[in-house]
Write a protein that binds this DNA or RNA. Structure first.
Length: 929
RNA sequence: GCCGAAGUGGUGGAAUGGCAGACACGACCGCCUCAAAAGCGGUUGCCCUCUGGGCGUGUGGGUUCAACUCCCACCUUCGGCACCA
């Protein structure tokens, strides 16, 4: 008996050897094509999750595959190490964020090493180290000096309970994610990045091979809309109120105006008799929680200011209201209300009895609708009416100038100087201030005269003080740490440091650049490295970052390009003969999202099982699915939720009572028609995210200990559609486990005895080359499950041939050589071990990828499929590449076709060439269907 | 409400418009064993009048010689946005 596969004996040993020999060190080499593979870096939360394995190990397999195919591959890893959890640990457990974070990083590094991934640890970057955040600060300065960073008042998420501002991502449905307490909008002075300058460029995805949904989400998030700005004069004060509208053609139907409660003109225009009511409404709006603002079906509310505006197209006086359905943050914070054409304005007008004027006659309607008889606004296409010069012009329902009515309206406004064509965006500037300690400091100084100035480069980084006290005040300790707070300005006068820190998305917007030279002291990244490696060729990670990180890092790259940060790298590129055109417009060329591994939570059918008890077990002769907990009184038997089913054995209820369903038992499932069987009983229907509170977290360390890293890797790749994810189910691990131990046995068994059968050996070679091709195609498409399945299939074939004694020593060795190289990206340890046992040179990971040979893969004989009316009816074995005429002749002569024709001639004969040729015979006057 | 994605055996999942269910898991039958586990061999979409045939990829239509795949409508689930002017 040969030695069986024991993962513990090999994995650690090879991991150490790879590290000692710097096997995965990636070094610039202009003689080789480069491939920068990147997978999203983790937050050091404490323990590696199975989700990290799911994200990283398939990405690793693909990076390895690229490397074997001759690319110089860089596959770095690091930590996104600033963030709130560290600060929370500091407050609640009195551990300094440094300590907490570094302990977690050390632990996770160790766990990551157990993956056997080809991470180049010499390129590791950790965003909370001064050597890293020095440059995060430096980039802030670059932005500031180029007008891309500014300070302004903004409405932010303020949590009364936590006494702090929260990031958008920390507010879920209007409540903070920690305590679930309401969050309100508060006006505060904050730092912003001008991402809106890049709105149009960010809408262009031409250079990107990214998933369509991500591009759509970003497009919607940016929210470009075409329309016009129109100025209305306030009758009493002569102030201008500018509104943005996508429907300037309906201006003649604007019968009132609405300002956001926060609008700056409200105070000025409000008449004395309305002031009390206005102020009360504004106060209420200011303290309204996000929940209240978001609540649906809310009656329109608002207050009249007492002031009137003049509609610039017809000089009519229209009342000015304030209402919270107008947002200060969108457009100009004011609207012209056209109740005829906008549902919100319509509801508002109805509620307060305001005038509605019909301005569009719908297509196919003879009369102009009477506003009093309308149930809802009309926003569809039609012909303009009651609209002065626009009367008779069509609105075709298109947006912007594509609608004749809108185009005419814009021209009309521009000719008279009362408005202009405008593009408005939903995207707002990126608010990067955080009132927290554990983030990169903002390198700015507040002077006594109230102005701000940047910290000189020579003083960077502004370091976070270590001797801070964390108190449960919700306030950042930086705000009361005197040594940090007190500094001097460029004139030597006492000054105060900025105490806000940066959003952690700032750190992750440029980490792909820091990997190029993580310990570089003089610049954020080495130009020599950047010229070779950039841009990232393949980026993998979760889709949840669609409109945050993935949008920010695109903005960042464009801003760095425009501020000249890449200029040095461009020079190097040119020196090396690489054309830099377009290479610095986008950070990542190809993006693929993996799905999520979910925990399985049970919510199965509720069953009533009756029969005879045999000990604790119920031998059931009747199982009925009933409405949840709808149990008849006095029921004798087992009843409860179906927790699990193993064929005829059911596990029922919270205590998993065992029910054996007899083969002839009656099964009743009201939802499924006809006679039911035990297989149709459903269990664990509801699937949820893994979380500690649900107790369904899968610990990768335990799995690795039990099965080995290679098996866990193969299982994760094999058992899911990687881009989809799915619920965790450990049972299926037997498949990949069996594959690995079979390959092990095949190799360890040693040279087969006997000469072998040349025909079978040729078959093995043919299948092997078909497999190479299949794996290449699968990996190209990120279909990791298929790539593993292809290898299992080959193993099955090879094993059978070996067992039959049909493979001789030479063919065995040659086949093993290819098979191990095919395995290497997926199961790197066992491939390395077996490669070494074959006596071949270290390392299998430095071998070239097997080259697909089409001739060797070609079949000499193929099945010719006989089809009658599109349905397969049998096959004939023919020579590959059979001519159409020959194939048709053979099929027509076949017994099946002859009996189907029954003496008639076929209506049509269709030949489908290919690896599996087919001939479809169309017979009969009518199809039965 | 708007935008997007997905619905395939008992389960995970395969299928450039061309033999649906590859590859696995589970189950069943058999071998081995005192026995169990492991291992090995076989069967496994459903149905029927079973050397054959019918039906099958969420539902209903359509295009095509041929549809899981393309088109239209609908249902369900998941994700994103949401008084966006």
């Amino acid at each position: 008996m040969t030695e069986s596969y024991q993962h513990k004996a090999i994995e650690k040993r090879w991991q150490d050897q790879w590290e000692e020999t710097s096997l995965y060190r990636s070094v610039v080499d202009w003689s080789k094509p480069k491939h920068y593979a990147l997978t999203m870096l983790p937050y050091p939360s404490g323990d590696l999750h199975i989700g990290h394995w799911f994200a990283m190990t398939p990405s690793d397999a693909r990076a390895r595959w690229m490397r074997m195919r001759g690319y110089n591959v860089m596959f770095p890893m690091g930590f996104d190490a600033f963030g709130l959890p560290a600060e929370q640990a500091a407050i609640s457990r009195n551990i300094h964020p440094w300590k907490w974070t570094y302990a977690n990083i050390e632990r996770m590094q160790k766990q990551m090493r157990s993956m056997g991934a080809m991470f180049d640890w010499e390129r590791e970057a950790i965003s909370c180290t001064p050597e890293y955040y020095k440059w995060t600060e430096w980039f802030f300065k670059v932005f500031y000096e180029n007008g891309l960073a500014y300070r302004d008042e903004a409405l932010v998420n303020w949590s009364e309970a936590l006494q702090t501002v929260l990031a958008n991502e920390q507010v879920i449905d209007g409540k903070d994610e920690r305590l679930g307490q309401p969050v309100i909008q508060k006006l505060m002075t904050q730092w912003f990045f001008k991402i809106t300058d890049y709105a149009d460029e960010l809408l262009n995805f031409d250079e990107l091979d990214w998933p369509e949904p991500i591009k759509i989400m970003q497009t919607n998030w940016i929210g470009r809309s075409e329309g016009a700005k129109v100025s209305f004069k306030v009758a009493s004060t002569d102030d201008d109120i500018v509104v943005f509208t996508t429907r300037p053609d309906t201006l003649w139907g604007a019968t009132f105006m609405v300002l956001a409660p926060e609008h700056s003109l409200v105070d000025k225009i409000t008449t004395d008799d309305q002031r009390a009511a206005i102020n009360a409404y504004r106060d209420a709006a200011a303290s309204a929680t996000e929940i209240e603002r978001l609540s649906e079906d809310r009656e329109k509310s608002g207050v009249f200011t007492g002031a009137y505006a003049i509609n610039p197209v017809n000089q009519k006086q229209i009342p000015i209201w304030i209402a919270d359905y107008v947002m200060i943050s969108y457009g100009t914070g004011a609207i012209m209300a056209v109740p005829y054409g906008d549902q919100r304005d319509f509801e508002f007008a109805r509620h307060f009895g305001l005038e509605i004027v019909a301005v569009v006659q719908p297509d196919g309607v003879d009369e102009i609708p009477v506003p009093d008889e309308m149930d809802e606004a009309y926003a569809g296409p039609g012909t303009m009416v009651n609209s002065g010069p626009l009367d008779g012009i069509a609105h075709n329902g298109e947006k912007g100038r594509k609608s004749p009515a809108i185009a005419s309206a814009i021209d009309y406004l521009e000719e008279r100087g009362i408005g202009e064509e405008t593009v408005n965006y939903r995207l707002r500037d990126w608010l990067i201030s955080r009132q927290r300690y554990w983030g990169s400091p903002i390198p700015m100084i507040h002077r006594q005269d109230g102005t701000v100035e940047p910290v000189p480069d020579s003083d960077l980084p502004v370091e976070l003080p270590e001797d801070v006290e964390f108190m449960p005040t919700g306030r950042s300790p930086l705000t009361y740490h005197q040594p940090f707070l007190n500094t001097v300005d460029s004139d030597g006068n006492p000054a105060r440091r900025e105490t806000d820190t940066m959003d952690t998305f700032m750190c992750s917007s440029w980490y792909q650049l820091r990997y190029l030279s993580p310990h570089e002291q003089e610049e954020p990244f080495s130009a020599e490295e950047a010229a070779y490696w950039l841009p990232v060729d393949v980026y993998t990670g979760g889709a949840e970052h669609a409109v945050m990180h993935l949008l920010y890092t695109r903005f960042f790259t464009k801003a760095l390009r425009d501020t000249g940060v890449f200029d040095e790298a461009i020079k190097v590129m040119k020196r090396e003969g690489r054309d830099p055109a377009g290479l610095f417009d986008e950070p990542m060329t190809v993006l693929r999202n993996q799905g999520q591994v979910l925990g399985g939570e049970r919510l199965g059918d509720y069953v009533l099982c009756s029969g005879q008890f045999s000990g604790d077990k119920l031998m059931a002769d009747r199982v009925e699915v009933v409405e949840w907990a709808d149990v008849p009184a006095g029921f004798q038997g087992v009843t409860g939720e179906l927790m699990k089913r193993v064929e005829g054995t059911l596990f029922v209820g919270p205590d998993n009572s065992i029910v054996e369903v007899k083969p002839d038992a009656e099964i009743i499932i009201p939802a499924i028609e006809g006679t039911n069987n035990v297989n149709q009983l459903k269990h664990h229907l509801e699937i949820q995210r893994m979380s500690k509170s649900k107790g369904n977290v899968v610990n990768p360390d335990e799995l690795v200990d039990k099965y080995g890293a290679d098996t866990v890797r193969a299982y994760l790749m094999f058992n899911f559609d990687w881009q989809k994810g799915g619920p965790w189910n450990e049972n299926n691990i037997k498949g990949p486990s069996g594959w690995i131990s079979d390959v092990w046995d095949i190799v360890v068994a040693g040279t087969p005895e006997g000469a072998g059968n040349p025909d079978v050996e040729r078959d093995v070679e043919r299948k092997l080359h078909q497999t190479i091709n299949e794996i290449d195609n699968s990996l190209e498409k990120f279909s990791f499950n298929k790539a593993i399945a292809d290898q299992m299939k080959f193993k099955n074939f090879f094993k059978a041939a070996l067992q039959a004694g049909d493979v001789g020593p030479d063919a065995w060795a040659a086949t093993v050589g290819v098979m191990l190289r095919l395995m290497a990206p997926f199961t790197p340890h066992v491939a390395e071990e077996l490669w070494a046992r074959m006596g071949w040179d270290y390392s299998v990971h430095q071998q070239p990828w097997p080259e697909y040979d089409e001739e060797k893969a070609a079949e000499s004989e193929v099945p010719l499929v006989i089809m009658i009316n599109g349905k397969p009816r049998g096959t004939i074995t023919v020579a590959a590449g059979i001519a159409q005429a020959d194939a048709e002749k053979l099929v027509l002569a076949s017994e099946k076709v002859q009996s189907a024709l029954n003496g008639d001639t076929p209506n049509r004969v269709i030949f489908i060439p290919g690896d599996e040729p087919k001939v479809n015979i169309v017979v009969g006057g009518k199809k039965k269907k």
